Simulated assay, not measured.
Amino acid sequence: MLGSGLATGCISVNAPSEPIVIELNINITQEVIYRLAADAGNTIDENADIF
């Protein structure tokens, strides 16, 4: 059993020839939505009679 484990070969790990490129497309909308919500709240407070 020990001999069969040694005869399986070896593993080699090589670095890629080209650089690794990671593209991140992140859409940040939380701040915009927060500002719109605050503006809407202010509008409702200022015009409570029409709601």
Rank of each mutant, 00 (worst) to 15 (best):
M1I: 09
M1H: 12
M1F: 11
M1Y: 04
M1E: 06
M1N: 07
L2F: 02
L2G: 15
L2Y: 10
L2A: 04
G3C: 07
G3K: 13
G3D: 05
G3I: 13
G5K: 11
G5C: 06
L6P: 02
A7M: 11
A7D: 08
T8V: 14
G9L: 01
G9H: 04
C10A: 14
C10N: 10
C10D: 12
C10W: 08
C10F: 08
C10P: 01
C10G: 08
I11S: 09
I11P: 00
S12C: 07
S12D: 02
S12R: 03
S12Y: 07
V13I: 15
V13A: 03
V13M: 06
N14W: 02
N14A: 04
N14P: 00
N14R: 05
A15K: 09
A15Y: 02
P16V: 04
P16R: 08
S17Y: 01
S17W: 06
E18N: 11
E18R: 09
P19Y: 09
P19W: 15
P19N: 14
I20F: 15
I20H: 11
I20R: 14
I20E: 10
V21L: 13
I22C: 12
I22M: 12
I22R: 06
I22L: 15
I22V: 15
I22Q: 06
I22E: 13
E23F: 05
E23H: 15
E23N: 15
E23I: 10
E23M: 05
L24I: 10
L24A: 12
L24M: 11
L24N: 11
L24P: 01
L24R: 05
N25D: 13
I26A: 08
I26E: 03
N27E: 13
N27G: 03
I28E: 06
I28Q: 01
T29D: 06
T29E: 13
T29Q: 03
Q30A: 04
E31D: 08
E31Y: 03
E31T: 07
V32R: 10
V32D: 05
V32M: 02
V32A: 09
I33V: 09
I33E: 10
I33S: 05
Y34F: 15
R35S: 13
R35L: 07
R35D: 12
R35H: 10
R35V: 12
R35A: 09
L36V: 09
L36H: 11
L36M: 12
A37N: 09
A37Y: 03
A38H: 14
A38W: 07
A38R: 09
D39K: 12
D39P: 01
A40S: 14
A40E: 13
A40T: 13
A40K: 06
G41T: 07
G41D: 13
N42W: 07
N42Y: 05
N42F: 07
T43Y: 15
T43Q: 07
T43V: 11
T43L: 14
T43N: 12
I44D: 04
I44V: 14
I44C: 04
D45M: 06
D45N: 10
D45F: 05
D45Q: 05
D45L: 03
D45T: 03
D45E: 11
D45P: 00
E46C: 10
E46F: 04
E46W: 00
N47F: 08
N47R: 07
N47G: 00
A48E: 07
A48W: 05
A48L: 02
A48I: 01
A48C: 04
A48S: 04
A48V: 01
D49H: 01
D49F: 00
D49W: 02
D49C: 02
D49T: 00
I50M: 00
I50C: 00
F51N: 00
